[in-house]
Amino acid sequence: MPSESPLASLRAAAEGVRQQLQVNAFDAAAVQRLSDFIEQQRPSIKDSEKQGVVTALGCFLGQCLVDTYGGTWAQGPDKTTGVGINRAYFFNPFFRVSEQLAKGEAESVVKFFAGIPERLALKPVRKNWIS
């Protein structure tokens, strides 16, 4: 049997979350739904499940970056998994999810996602991650 690649695992997790969130695509509307879901679940997520939930929801947010802004799943300079865009920017969706889970709407994934075009318009930095 073929073993599942890391990329396939990331996408499978994102798809599982998409179905659970009942959204049709990995787009801005889906990120809004993700944010609402995080706010709704924040008080009740068990500590034992927190890391797993961050990973699952991070895969979903990352896939939204890939599909909406033409990013690619990649390994960052610090060896973390994230999404590279335009061969110049690297984003860690797992960190963004954990921030909203910890701090609430002040660190909303919606704000982060909506701010991407502005950040992409800034002067690009040299690519220093592996995709």
Partner: peptide
């Protein structure tokens, strides 16, 4: 799987 109680189980 949506019948499961655990959020994590339902997600992934």
């Amino acid at each position: 799987r949506y019948t499961r109680r655990s959020l994590l189980e339902r997600l992934v």
